[in-house]
Amino acid sequence: MKIAGCSAVISGGASGLGAAAARRLARAGASVVLLDLPRAEEAGAALVAELGGGAVFVPGDVTNWDDVGVAMQTARERAPLRIAVAAAGIATSGSLVGPRSDRGELFAQTVAVNLGGTYALLAQAASTMSEHAQTDGDRGVVVCTASIAAYEGQVGQVAYAASKSGVAGMTLPAARELARHQIRVVTIAPGLFETPMFAGVADEVRASVGAQVPHPSRLGNPDEYAGLVQHVIENSMLNGEVIRLDGAIRMGPR
């Protein structure tokens, strides 16, 4: 599917992987709607200024159905909505037992943002896309973001791994359901990437973490994630699949 002339909604679009996807899609000719929390407005405004008329920032929370709907409407007013990228998420850590044990609040919040927020974007984007005529055989593409924690969650990642496993697990049934509307659904499961999670981490720590990756032995660059997002959109045979983007790393228990 061609990117130029489409609008794209990107949750978590003001920073990290979402911002990288926004830059890539805007360069390819998409009109980009950045959906992110109100506290990210300064970063969102800076990215909008960088991208010029190719982007707009919409403050909102992916756990709020109405906020997601506002982003969809904003995109529809700019160009036909054919692309959605679910990049919003939180990384959490907690224990089942002991002094750091979670009584369910952290688990519920993590699942609400990572899984529920992805579902809200997927469902509302698909509803909007289904109204359009086909372009190059597609009405639209939704790219979700899981994590290698969906497969090798580490100690303390019960909530995070469960939420990301849910994203991976809904990919195929969503793709099968939306096939009759000519809408594709693909999920990317990133490994260790240079994202805000590593902001403030010492260089030697980042180097040590990156060295765990077999090849290339470094943290991933967000533009490499964005490059895969672009390829997924443009390659119509990619559908119903979860793609690991991790340099062949397999995480240990800790």
Rank of each mutant, 00 (worst) to 15 (best):
R139L: 10
T145Y: 05
D102E: 06
H132Y: 11
T63D: 05
D102P: 03
T128E: 15
Y119S: 08
A45Y: 00
A79E: 07
A112I: 07
S95T: 13
F107P: 06
A126G: 07
G54F: 05
G89S: 05
G54P: 00
A40F: 03
V56C: 08
P99H: 05
A71M: 05
Q134H: 11
N114W: 01
V56F: 00
A46G: 01
Y119N: 07
L47G: 01
G89R: 04
P80N: 10
T92A: 13
A79Y: 02
H132C: 10
R76T: 11
L51V: 05
V56R: 07
R139C: 12
M129D: 04
T110Y: 12
V141S: 09
V143N: 07
A112T: 08
E131V: 13
A71F: 04
Y119W: 15
M72T: 06
S130M: 11
V85Y: 11
G89F: 06
D36R: 00
A112C: 08
D61W: 13
A43S: 13
G116M: 08
E41L: 01
E131D: 12
Q109G: 06
R39S: 15
A49D: 15
S101C: 12
E131P: 05
Q73T: 14
Q124G: 08
T128K: 06
L34Q: 02
R100Q: 14
A75H: 12
P99I: 08
A43E: 11
N64S: 15
A75K: 11
G29M: 07
L81I: 05
S127F: 11
T145W: 01
G89I: 04
V33F: 02
S31D: 14
R103N: 14
G89V: 04
A108K: 14
A46P: 00
N64H: 12
V113A: 07
G69N: 06
A126I: 06
R100E: 14
E131S: 15
